[in-house]
Structure formats: C-alpha cells, structure tokens
C-alpha cells in the first residue's frame, strides 16, 4: 500500500457516496447511466470472486465487500426505487460492444489460462471502458447536474491516482502489472475530455455544459 493507491481508493469510495447521495437527495437517477452501473457490478463480481480463495488484507476484504454491495445497491435504487426517473431512451449505448471485446481480449491476453484468472482479466478490460455509456449519455444530453460531475470527477481521480501508484511500485517493489497498467491508462484517457470541462467550467462555478 502506498499513498497514491490509498488516495485512489478513497476517491473511489467518495465517488460512490456522492452518487448515492445524489440519487437520494434529488430522489432521482436522472443523468446516470444504468448500463454503466450494471457494468460496474459485473466488473466487481468478476474480479472479487477471489474473496473466496485469496486473502490479501482486512482492508482489501472490506473494500471488496463494499464495492460489490454498494454497486448492487445502486442498481436496486435505479431499477426499483427510482425507476420512473430513469430514461432508457437516452441510455442507449450498446454494451455488447464493450462486453464482447473484453471477453475476447481476456481470452487472448492474460497471465494464465485459468477460469478465475480470465475473469480477473476480463474485469480489468471491462472496467477500462465501463464509463463509456455514462460519457455517451453526457455527450448526448450535453449537460449534467453539478453533483453528477463531482461523481465522475471522483471516479476519474481514482483511476488517475493509480498511475503514480504503479510508477511508485515499479521503483520501490519492482512490481509491474502490464495488463492493469495498459487498461488503466486507457481508462484514465477516457476521462480527459470530461476533466477539461470539469476544471474549466464546474470548478469555476459554472454549469457543466458542452458546446453545442
């Protein structure tokens, strides 16, 4: 564990609390992509299946439980409790285009051709692109509630902080995880446009609006 990873994980935690807070205070999941949230559940379940056979630490254990539970809870909020506030007609990204390639890539590029190992790899590739339906939705509507942008910023910060974590681990522990690094760089790259608008508009007190 190092500071970058800890801050990254805390940022990830914060993003989930912000999202739940947004849904509950506005009593609405408007502007949130159900598809992205469903992909995150898939990612966490596929990756944290190792809860059953690999012990890392108490920290790691509770974080995994939290991420699985909170992502399922968010799906529940969107699918049942605040269902009428979700508009499927603007959440139309074809998730097959993300899941399909993630399956194929994980079968080809993995560390070991074993079921749980391929599930881990699949979760890494899928997480890299899981935000796309959400960003696509944002692009389509051209605007977002400020709280939603804070959620995305915290989520993006989590990914960005993992990069210095890998650099740090390379020098201090001589550890390199090429699959996580390549996928992580792609994932962080997807946030660049968003971050640009977030820093130049939202943090200056303006509404998040994309140029027409």
């Amino acid at each position: 564990m190092n500071l970058f990873r800890l801050l990254g994980d805390l940022s990830h935690l914060a993003s989930i609390f912000i999202l739940i807070h947004k849904i509950q205070t506005t009593r609405s999941c408007r502007g949130i992509s159900f598809q992205t949230q469903a992909l995150y559940v898939t990612v966490f379940v596929a990756r944290y299946i190792d809860l059953f056979f690999r012990w890392i630490s108490l920290y790691n254990f509770f974080m995994k439980i939290f991420f699985i539970a909170s992502s399922v809870y968010i799906l529940y909020l969107m699918k049942y409790r605040y269902r009428p506030t979700h508009d499927p007609s603007i959440d139309t990204f074809k998730v097959e285009y993300l899941v399909g390639p993630a399956v194929v890539l994980s079968l080809i590029f993995n560390y070991k051709f074993e079921f749980t190992e391929i599930l881990w790899t699949f979760s890494i590739y899928l997480e890299a692109v899981a935000i796309l339906p959400q960003l696509f939705m944002l692009q389509r509507t051209g605007e977002a509630e400020t709280i939603t942008t804070h959620y995305l910023a915290a989520l993006g910060a989590y990914r960005a902080l993992y990069i210095p974590n890998w650099i740090y681990r390379y020098f201090t522990e001589d550890v390199v995880d090429p699959i996580a690094i390549v996928a992580g760089l792609v994932q962080t790259g997807l946030y660049l446009d968003f971050f640009y608008v977030y820093f130049t508009k939202v943090l200056q007190g303006q509404k998040f609006e994309l140029p027409a």
């Binding site: 990830h12 890392i56 993992y162 550890v175 995880d177």
Partner: peptide
C-alpha cells in the same frame, strides 16, 4: 518482476 496472480489492488 511481473505480478502474475498477485492481484492485490482493487
């Protein structure tokens, strides 16, 4: 070395 199967990150 490469962290094959360590997977200690979240």
């Amino acid at each position: 070395h490469v962290v094959e199967e360590t997977h200690d990150e979240l």
